[in-house]
Design a protein around this nucleic acid. Structure first.
Lengths: 240, 240
DNA sequence: GCCTGTTTTAAACGTATGTTTGAATCATAT
DNA sequence: ATATGATTCAAACATACGTTTAAAACAGGC
């Protein structure tokens, strides 16, 4: 009733349609990153894209579906590339065990390639992703969970083989910490102005960033198991 | 002209004033965390607080100043507590070097105490903080930088003494990674549903969380120095 | 019991919100 | 050339936005 479910002419997408949809996606990507989902208006987006206000509802159905389309456009290929790269590494080192470093590289390299490709989202998209991670809106959380689930499962089993002594439960927690450091770093929001003191020529050099983050995370993954026995914590004991 | 700069009767803050201001702060804290700064309206806040719409502008001046007041109310005491605890540890181990574990504890324990105090913000506030970290609005970034600067500087020099072999530049990066993992974990947004598979009785046990996160971060801080010499990266070589 | 300064209130300012609608425009296949 | 389905468009829906204003209600000191 409201909009055609799918295009009925699959032969050649008329150019104007692709242009309109892509311009909406581009404008949405930039504005959602700047203002967040809720505070970005369709009027801002359609004005920036140079299209009619009704075009979003016509082409995407709703503001929520547009937001999901904005994320899917970059996230789907990036996560697919991650899994492909991981499988490439696994074939490369045929029977042998894959090192944590290489598994981490399979996560990072596709993200870095995306960050460098300024024509297609680039850093802006990674910042948008960082915002989406922190948004408690249920539809965003459900969407991200489903979008990431297959890739996370794949990497979890890879890390599980690389760290055979690490209990499953402990691994899940460490992946949680890892994703935190990674998304925070890739989003590059620099909330605490830590980077301000660094050499400005070095800021924005994603290459060196990966080379610094990887050893940090590998060491974290390989850290000795925590001592969970004692019932009272330092926090409770150290009441000054 | 618009509002009185400060109260001119310092003897006994009339109860109604404190009630109104605090109810606005409470409502703002909850709503800012749910919808973000921009998408939260003063009408939502004042309705939830049961006060008149104009009360925000009267007591705080503007929506932005209210937001800063919401953050300051919890952040100021928490960061002060962190520094005090660090100094307490330093006195305790008088001349000797402070271990990374204890420095980390000085960062974590005040945050955990805040997370547990549900009557006064609790977890909700830490989630709001996680959202604020990811918000690129300039006034939020400036505010957070200035709010954290003294505490970060204090801990940076403490870590610097605990890790004497680590170059300053490297330490700043590792603090960046550390803050990422920490804020992501404390915000507990669980963007990727990693925790869903964990024992539900364990979810929400902040005590064990600290015991798991600390070894991860300590190992990361003490990781071997990265090899930054090679000019071509794995990312460029591994083009499959 | 007026007087003074603080706080609350209702109303109004101009502007913006997501979505729907029905008619106009376009491209193409017959 | 005409019919057809996809796309665009301007207008309208009821509702919400942050801030300002001037009057009302309240407090405590004298």
């Amino acid at each position: 009733m409201t909009r055609p479910a799918t295009k009925s002419l699959p032969l050649a997408e008329t150019r104007d349609q692709r242009d309109t949809k892509e311009r909406i996606l581009d404008a949405g990507e930039a504005l959602f990153m700047e203002h967040g989902f809720e505070a970005t208006s369709l009027r801002q987006i359609t004005a920036a894209a140079g299209v009619n206000l009704a075009a979003v509802n016509y082409h995407f159905g709703s503001k929520e579906e547009l937001f999901q389309a904005v994320l899917t456009r970059r996230l789907d290929p990036m996560n697919a590339e991650r899994v492909l790269l991981l499988e490439h590494y696994e074939r490369e080192t045929a029977g042998q065990m894959l090192s944590c470093e290489r598994i981490l590289n399979a996560m990072f390299i596709p993200a870095l390639r995306l960050a460098r490709d300024n024509q297609r989202g680039g850093k802006n998209f990674l910042r948008l992703l960082g915002r989406a991670y922190a948004d408690p809106a249920p539809f965003i959380r459900h969407f991200l969970s489903e979008q990431y689930a297959p890739m996370i499962a794949r990497f979890k089993s890879a890390f599980s083989r690389a760290l055979p002594h690490l209990p499953k439960k402990e691994l899940v927690w460490r992946l949680h910490f890892l994703m935190g450091a990674m998304s925070y770093t890739l989003a590059g929001t620099d909330a605490l102005k830590l980077i301000a003191e660094l050499n400005p020529t070095e800021t924005g050099n994603d290459e060196l960033l990966l080379r610094r983050l990887a050893p940090f995370l590998v060491a974290g993954l390989q850290a000795p198991l925590p001592d969970l026995q004692e019932s009272r914590s330092e926090g409770e004991r150290a009441r000054a």
